[in-house]
Design a binder for these strands. Structure first.
Lengths: 344, 344
DNA sequence: GCGCTATCAGAAAGCGCTTTCCTGAGGTAC
DNA sequence: GTACCTCAGGAAAGCGCTTTCTGATAGCGC
């Protein structure tokens, strides 16, 4: 039975002794067909294990259902938390999902968008920080503009705002400020920040919100060390901080992933958490509660963010202005942050 | 510029004042075209932001490049480690990847396969444990059989062997046995196993290999507690074990994810690791080195497994028997397993 | 019986492309 | 000048489907 080809509707029709049109009608349930013919067609289709060619259908129907999701890495837990929600939401709507990882390569991101455009994807979702420079922005506009004006949908999560599309945005500034206030109320006064790349708006907001809250409390600004958004980055930033002589009582890592690296670095240097220094992160990715000590962080409703971005992308755009949905973060105090003795 | 439709090749051709055929030839670089016309077509295409309709291309070329990956959950680190390798391998070959999560629902798995079949996907990769029962097997065969005989490629990672397709298989039995021997040489003699669902061949092999090695050493078989493959499952199994009075010196969780749950449960009950009890896992997912204590486990080359499965799926099948690639696991001793005093 | 409408099913157009076939223009050889 | 070849580029077929159009048959009232 090595047919070397897929079964076509024509074959089904022939096998059932009806015309192509009738076979199509039966399988789409689109019009009345005599029961006898209907049965014959259905029998033939199942006999031949017929599956319609989705491309032919897409071509004639001029529509396609795929939702494309682009992020930098599937195995990043921040991303996969969001992706989980998005995939669930897509599955509920019977939409196939196409996922791609850019591995932080702008070229690849553009290439994937182009590919999704070629497939006439129903929606494109961009998750996580992009590449915030001029050239990239121009390239993005060149891809996304025609896609949007051809009726495509684009929505982003946690991206900088220069893309003028529907957005799900964590309240980074408020979350970081609330975290700072919690840490202040634990008695901390000297802070250091393990920052992600300073050009990303997520970083700007998280660091900015944090510093702002410190300033409002009349506390000196935190020392900021910049590193990539990764476990490795957190590790490196922390090592740098330690080597120049740490004089803070509390570290704030702008993402949990960085905090994980920070924790490892601290341990390697024999610095105890939280006895010697407190540590807090941001995002509440699933692993951080299993660390020792469990990590204080700002919890983001990751799955819900994924669901929301799908909903945004698929909403009725007819009377549409751009919509921005802000997701509040809640401070979760765990054991990685210590209360400092009152008379400091 | 709200065209409400995508630009077609015909529009490009008209804009450039050439025929459809010429425009196609230019954009595919498939035949000699006068430089002047070539330039006009390219200018028109870029002016109109033309992107070819991938469905039309797929239809006429009778081929499609998408690689489909199906697993139960994107946010499972075991899966995402493999997926990362697979996506990288696919990206190297310029193949788009379509990913789907079944959330452990057999119906959904079948539905996704059918969808990928409809899209005439180039290959379908199934990652992680499936559903090992009669009905499911029959349904799988009904989907996969026609797909294979139509020239589709299927490969699986870490699946039971009843699917007669190319397979990447961790050496679960050997890995678990090697782990057992390492633990024995640390002085442990009384073991308990936190097992995943007993019907899965992965579990059969891991538990079987472990017990076998114990038997060969003349050590009593480990007590086995069964639970789902999840943090929650590991937590529950451990709690059960503790409530009936733990008399083992070492726990073996059949997956790292379960070990994470076990560690949490132990901590909640005030049982210290490794002072009171040692704990070992399997897989070496990325988080376990950041636990306290870092987890002893059997390291699997997850990314490589992802790369291998793509290679298997895309290999030349012409003179093909089914191929099974076995991936060795290596025991990684970390601090979660203690050496027991010699005179036990 | 006739003419009318309903119902069902086949013929055919067309979705956006690639590719084969074919025509006509230009070049070369004699 | 004629015969022949080369080659650029247009016309058209066709990928597998959906859907409109059209035609055939049956049913009804008179």
């Amino acid at each position: 039975m090595t047919d070397r080809a897929h079964v076509t509707l024509q074959q089904v029709a022939t096998a059932a002794g009806v015309s192509l049109a009738t076979a199509s009608r039966v399988l789409n349930g689109s019009a009345r067909v005599r029961p006898e013919l209907r049965d014959r067609v259905e029998a033939a289709a199942s006999e031949l294990a017929y599956t319609p060619n989705a491309h032919a259908q897409a071509l004639v129907r001029a529509s396609w259902q795929t939702v494309g999701i682009i992020s930098h890495d599937v195995s990043d837990p921040y991303f996969s938390g969001i992706a989980r929600g998005a995939m669930r939401a897509a599955a509920e709507r019977d939409l196939p999902v196409m996922m791609a990882s850019t591995f932080r390569d702008p070229e690849r991101e553009i290439a994937y968008i182009s590919m999704l455009r070629a497939q006439r994807a129903r929606a494109i979702l961009l998750i996580g920080s992009g590449f915030e420079d001029r050239r990239w922005e121009r390239a993005m506009d060149a891809e996304l503009g025609p896609y949007l004006s051809a009726g495509g949908r684009v929505a982003v999560v946690s991206r900088h705002r220069s893309l003028r599309v529907d957005t799900v945005l964590p309240q980074n500034r408020q979350g970081a400020a609330a975290l700072a206030r919690s840490l202040l109320s634990l008695g901390h006064r000297r802070f250091a920040v393990l920052s992600g790349p300073a050009r990303l708006s997520t970083v700007v907001d998280r660091v900015g919100g944090f510093q702002r809250a410190l300033a409002e409390a009349g506390v000196p600004a935190a020392e900021v060390v910049e590193a990539p958004f990764s476990r490795e980055g957190g590790h490196r930033a922390t090592t740098a901080l330690l080597s120049r002589g740490l004089d803070s009582t509390c570290l704030f890592a702008t993402t949990d992933v960085m905090a994980v690296g920070a924790l490892a670095a601290l341990r390697e240097h024999g610095v105890r958490v939280p006895e010697d220094v407190s540590l807090a992160g941001f995002d509440d990715i699933s692993v951080v509660r299993d660390l020792t000590p469990p990590l204080t962080t700002v919890a983001l409703p990751l799955e819900e963010m994924g669901e929301r971005v799908v909903a945004l992308a698929l909403r009725d755009h007819s009377r549409g202005r751009r919509r921005i949905e802000r997701m509040a973060g809640t401070v979760v105090l765990r054991a990685s942050t210590a209360r400092l003795p009152a008379p400091q």
